[in-house]
């Protein structure tokens, strides 16, 4: 069996008591005084039926994510810390979650890696949190919810990228986030289905912003992972961006070559949910035509279940390409070897 690395598994803080050992006296007292149970996290972002189970400890993660098809996994803990506006509290919760990730999972099982949780709207605090950790701790990425207060290319977020680049972490954008701004480009949706269906456009806006504001020039070693973003939209937006760059590069003169060249080198996308035709033959044809396979990192998105389309498709890939998507792309991307 060739190795399989699942690049998007969601462990879940089961409650404040799990991270209490890592919180300061002040915040433990405050939570008691205010009878506050912590941010809603994954339970707030997804309707209950969407998430099959909550992976709150090592045993649950091993059972859900390491017992096939994957034998190693990247944990993305979405706790919703960006919903907290208090600058000290959002930083405190982030730090506690990371300590919990380290002790509960990373220190206990070397098949696991994790993304750091950071107070993303307080970039200096986020950078300080990033610098508390290193790759030796098992962290390989900084998790940033895709909906943000302003587009992520903005220089106010650069302290995060600088710290991530120093530490050798990738930047990982994932579905989620609370900003005070609507989660669609057109305004506030009334339903979950609208938010989810519009999700790809939010990723697109972030990607365009990061390119235009010079993320790839300012941080030459930094990698960008798009998780749960879908993949089929990427070639069309690259085509449009390249075309527009020929006309408007004066606005962003630090972008010195076709943006698609940087993006193909510096951006990867996780596979689940895969927005492709259900017929695997046609889906594979699309991936090949658009040269997307080198950019794909296998993910299950457990415990958020999407159906088996993705696994069926990967199974149909020629062995060499399948090995890349299932493991080798991720091995190279996250430096797993």
């Amino acid at each position: 069996m060739s190795p399989v690395f699942d690049c998007d598994v969601h462990c879940d803080v089961p409650g404040l008591e799990a991270i209490a050992p890592y919180l300061s006296r002040h915040w433990r007292d405050r939570f008691g005084e205010n009878r506050w149970a912590g941010p809603a996290g994954i339970g707030h972002v997804y309707p209950p039926a969407v998430v099959s189970e909550r992976l709150g400890d090592l045993e649950a993660v091993r059972a859900a994510a390491l017992s096939g098809p994957a034998d190693r996994a990247l944990l993305n803990c979405y706790y919703g810390v960006e919903m907290i506006r208090h600058p000290d509290l959002t930083a405190e919760l982030s730090a506690a979650v990371n300590s919990w990730l380290r002790e509960e999972f990373l220190a206990a099982d070397d098949r696991l890696r994790a993304s750091l949780v950071v107070p993303v709207e307080y970039p200096e605090a986020a950078a300080a949190e990033i610098r508390r950790w290193s790759r030796e701790d098992g962290f390989v990425q900084v998790l940033m919810p895709v909906v943000s207060q302003t587009t992520y290319g903005n220089r106010r977020y650069w302290p995060i990228y600088r710290a991530a680049a120093e530490r050798g972490f990738a930047i990982g954008l994932h579905f989620g986030g609370v900003s005070g701004a609507p989660p669609t480009a057109s305004g506030w949706p009334d339903s979950y289905i609208e938010e989810v269906a519009a999700n790809a456009s939010v990723f697109q806006g972030q990607l365009l912003s990061l390119v235009a504001e010079g993320f790839f020039q300012e941080f030459p070693g930094l990698r960008l992972t798009l998780m749960e973003s879908g993949v089929t939209w990427l070639p069309t937006i690259l085509w449009r961006f390249d075309k527009m760059w020929k006309s408007y590069r004066r606005e962003i003169p630090w972008v010195k070559r076709l943006p698609s060249i940087d993006l193909r080198e510096r951006v990867r996308l996780t596979t689940q949910p895969l927005d492709l035709p259900t017929d695997p033959g046609r889906a594979l044809e699309f991936l090949e035509t658009m040269e997307l396979e080198p950019l794909l990192l296998y993910s299950s998105d457990r415990p958020h279940l999407h159906g088996a389309d993705c696994e069926v498709l990967i199974e149909r890939m020629p062995a060499e390409r399948r090995a890349k998507v299932l493991y080798e792309n991720a091995e190279q991307w996250y430096g797993l070897a």
Binding site: E213, G214, Q217, R250, P253, W254, K256
Partner: peptide, 13 residues
Amino acid sequence: VMGWLESERPGAY
């Protein structure tokens, strides 16, 4: 007719 604009890094013209 435009000036010869280049940039060494974001924000530099």
